[in-house]
Every structure is written in structure tokens, then in C-alpha cells.
């Protein structure tokens, strides 16, 4: 109960601030920027209502948009991720389904599962985001290339954060 009403809002704020104040100032090669904040959506409990997750995704994207003056861009990409996530979770489910209250993290479902899950989510989110950003398909491979480059960078960040957080989970 406490976890739901305190930890998640707190995590939400931390992810947004960390993204807009620190990560948005990191740019490799001029255009490659990591988007770590979607890890918040990835970590949401599996059994939560799909519609609720969709709403939270929208809010998360919108918060990032407010800070970066990219109205609607991150919101649309996050809503897309929130929409795809339940289907992806079904697809990646273990043969006998998820255990009750298992969290979609490396600690909860193992590294190989988490890597698959994160890679697909990041890829879908980033591709959507970068194509919405240019708003045209005319430079398809150029845009896809930039999306993939950011992809790798984000994924590395997500894995790093996951390593540190699962260490602290173990200690608890």
C-alpha cells in the first residue's frame, strides 16, 4: 500500500527530474541522447490495470514534454509504449504465466527475460519518438539510424540502473 502511494509518485518525480536536468544535457556526437525515464513504465507492476498504465504513461510523457517544449511528442511515444506493453508481457510470459506479484525487473524475472523485454520496449518507444520528431518518412534511414544509436545508449543506461537497483534489492 505504502509502496503504491509513496514509492511510485516519488520514483516518477525522480525519473522526470533526472531526465530533464541531467540526461538531456548529455549528448554523444551531437544528436544521441539517452531516454532513461521510460524505465518507470517498464517497472510498473504486471498486474496493474492496462488503462491505468496507459494513463500513467501519458502523464509521464507529458511531464517530459512540458520541460523540453516538445508538446505531445514524448506523450505520444509513451502512450504507444503503454499500449504495447501488455501485449508484449503476454508474448514474453513464462509457460505457466507470471507468478503473483512478481515485478518486471531483472531481479524478479531474470536477466535474459529483462533484456528481451527492455530491448523491445526501448526500440519501439525510440522509433516512435524519433519519427514523430521529424514528422516525415522522407529521411527514413537517417531517422532510424539516429533512433538506433540513442537506443543503444538508453539501453546501456537502463541496464546500469537495473544492476544498481537489483543490488540494493538483494541487500534488503
Amino acid at each position: 500500500m505504502i509502496k503504491t502511494f509513496v514509492t511510485y509518485p516519488l520514483q516518477f518525480i525522480v525519473f522526470v527530474l533526472f531526465q530533464v536536468l541531467i540526461l538531456n544535457n548529455i549528448q554523444l556526437g551531437g544528436t544521441i541522447n539517452p531516454y532513461l525515464y521510460i524505465l518507470f513504465i517498464l517497472w510498473l507492476p504486471i498486474e496493474w490495470n492496462k488503462a491505468l498504465v496507459l494513463g500513467i504513461s501519458f502523464l509521464l510523457g507529458l511531464s517530459i514534454d512540458v520541460f523540453t517544449d516538445t508538446m505531445g511528442m514524448h506523450a505520444s511515444a509513451c502512450v504507444f509504449l503503454g499500449f504495447v506493453r501488455p501485449y508484449l508481457l503476454n508474448l514474453l510470459a513464462p509457460r505457466d504465466g507470471y507468478e503473483l506479484n512478481v515485478s518486471p525487473t531483472a531481479g524478479g524475472l531474470g536477466w535474459s527475460w529483462f533484456l528481451q523485454y527492455a530491448t523491445i520496449c526501448v526500440f519501439l518507444h525510440h522509433s516512435f519518438l524519433f519519427f514523430v520528431e521529424v514528422f516525415r518518412f522522407s529521411e527514413f534511414f537517417d531517422t532510424l539510424g539516429r533512433a538506433l544509436a540513442s537506443n543503444i545508449f538508453s539501453l546501456v543506461m537502463i541496464i546500469l540502473v537495473q544492476v544498481f537497483s537489483s543490488n540494493s534489492e538483494d541487500r534488503r
Binding site: G61, D65, S76, F135
Partner: peptide
């Protein structure tokens, strides 16, 4: 979201 993008 797209309404916001276009408005912006």
C-alpha cells in the same frame, strides 16, 4: 497527444 503536437 497529436493535437498538442500540431498546436505547438
Amino acid at each position: 497527444a497529436f493535437y498538442l503536437i500540431l498546436k505547438n
